[in-house]
């Protein structure tokens, strides 16, 4: 069964004005380690997509984002619990 991804609400907040000013970069929060991590515009777009499409799977994501970078980035999000799996 495919992994399904949902964004962890405690790990991010999208702030439209600030995000625009910051050229679609943002920071996210690893709730366990309390580490703050930076996302580049591509990472920002992926997280936003997951937030807007809860329970999306890899197939759905790969229709919008480049496959080779996607799996590594999803692994990073998983590791830091920025996305939750179901």
């Amino acid at each position: 069964m495919n992994k399904r991804y949902s964004a962890n609400p405690f790990s991010f907040i999208f702030v439209p004005d600030a995000d625009l000013r910051n050229n679609s970069t943002t920071i996210v929060f690893d709730v366990n380690s309390e580490e703050i991590l930076k996302l580049n515009p591509e990472g920002y777009k992926i997280l936003k997509y997951i937030d807007e499409n809860p329970q999306c799977d890899f197939d759905l994501l790969s229709r919008t984002f480049t496959k080779n970078k996607l799996s590594g980035f999803l692994g990073f999000l998983e590791k830091h619990k920025i996305v939750l799996l179901s």
Partner: peptide, 14 residues
């Protein structure tokens, strides 16, 4: 400065 709202939000999580 760049991410003040985000930092404020994570501070609440803490």
């Amino acid at each position: 400065l760049l991410y003040s709202i985000q930092e404020d939000y994570f501070y609440r999580v803490k």
